[in-house]
Amino acid sequence: MSDSPQGRAGHWHLNDIVAQLRSAREQWRSQNGRSCGAQGGRELPSRDAMATLLEQLCGALFPMRLGPVDLREESEDFYVGHTLDAALNALLVQARLELRYATRQEPCNNDAVDAQAVSLVQAFAAALPGLRRLLDSDVLAAYHGDPAARSVDEVLLCYPGILAVIHHRVAHHLYRAGLPLLARISSEIAHSSTGIDIHPGAQIGGSFFIDHGTGVVIGETAIIGERVRIYQAVTLGAKRFPADESGQLQKGWPRHPIVEDDVVIYAGATILGRITIGKGSTIGGNVWLTRSVPAGSNLTQANLQHDDGTQK
């Protein structure tokens, strides 16, 4: 048998498989009223493009720590400007794709969509200095909150919780700006790398610290105050998922916890539903909580149990 590409293709019957895959794609698109994009081009944003521009944004926000290894302070501003220009132009392309996808069922007005995309990316660029200052508070919170941290530089370079928070701060801005798909891609890139799953809709105050981090889940409508610290395997989730008359899950309604300022939540705690954890409370490890608690509460598995072993 020939070892040429043609011979190998015949061995795998690739022509038949390719034809069947094309048929499956066409059937799905027909059933769902979908096309493959304008003039047959790409219809959806690219995860790879988002990963690249997020890496560029990290470098532009923290150039001497997350930027190139040979960067010097005298060329810092040039690097930041050049990198931001590339990242923002790439973000503009992805924003156009998302906006055109979102309006694909409406009369096409690409000029209006392009103008909206430019406006959204301009607003994002203007928000970056404030975003950097907010992230500085998160880095300091991690440094002060972890006795094992030797410097803020170690925290920024090494801690998965900080990487997840950087991505979340970017993603949350995109989410609020009306680019939820780009926001979700940004969050899921960090989720894949860190094991920390923060929905971009979650509202998180400054000086936020996730220690260790693996297995943390923070839902879309969660609201977290200032100076909150949480540990690995914590879930801020929904208790139930009501459906509408047609049986479809209702989306967007508040269903995740509110965590007020200065709360600490230890490893493995599960907090479900639209409940409030009062300011300054401490939630112990592996606690399962579905009711609100007042400010200053200190909950552990032991003080959540009745004498007969059932949960209060």
Rank of each mutant, 00 (worst) to 15 (best):
Q203V: 09
D70K: 13
V121M: 02
A141M: 05
D85I: 11
H199N: 04
H199S: 03
V216Y: 01
F208H: 00
A222D: 01
T290K: 15
R100K: 14
A243P: 08
I277M: 00
D153F: 06
P5C: 05
M50K: 04
A86Y: 02
I277P: 00
N286H: 10
G59E: 05
I271H: 00
H173Q: 06
V155W: 01
P160E: 15
L54P: 01
A125I: 08
P257R: 02
I275W: 01
I185V: 04
N110K: 13
Y266P: 01
N109F: 10
L120A: 04
P107V: 15
P63C: 08
E76I: 08
D114L: 08
K279P: 00
F208Y: 03
H306K: 14
R34Y: 06
H144P: 07
I198F: 01
R255D: 01
M50Q: 04
G278Q: 03
T235M: 02
H167A: 08
G33H: 03
Q311H: 12
L181F: 09
N89V: 13
V264P: 02
G201P: 06
D3W: 12
L299Y: 03
V287Q: 03
L174F: 04
R29M: 11
A86G: 07
H13T: 11
K251Q: 14
G81F: 05
W253I: 09
C36Y: 14
R34N: 09
D48R: 08
F124R: 00
L99G: 03
D77H: 10
L174M: 07
G130H: 15
S186C: 11
D111A: 06
E106M: 13
S119Q: 11
H212R: 12
R184P: 05
S46W: 08
R240H: 10
G10S: 15
Q56T: 15
I162T: 03
E220F: 01
R150E: 14
T194N: 06
V139W: 01
P63E: 06
R104E: 10
G40M: 04
L135F: 04
G10H: 11
P257G: 05
R184K: 08
E26Q: 06
V69P: 13
S186K: 02
S119I: 11
H199Y: 05
H82F: 12
R72A: 12
A60T: 04
R100V: 09
D3H: 08
A102Q: 07
D197K: 07
A49E: 07
I185C: 01
A183W: 00
T194V: 06
N286G: 08
R291V: 14
L54R: 02
D16P: 09
R65I: 11
I271F: 00
S30W: 13
H306Q: 13
H173W: 05
G201L: 00
H11M: 12
A302L: 12
L128I: 04
Q250H: 11
E245R: 11
Y101M: 07
T290L: 09
D261G: 02
I275E: 00
R240N: 14
L174C: 06
A112Q: 07
Y266W: 11
A95V: 05
R133Y: 11
R104C: 14
G284T: 07
A183T: 04
A141S: 08
S75C: 10
E74P: 08
I283E: 00
Y143P: 02
V264M: 02
E188R: 04
T276W: 01
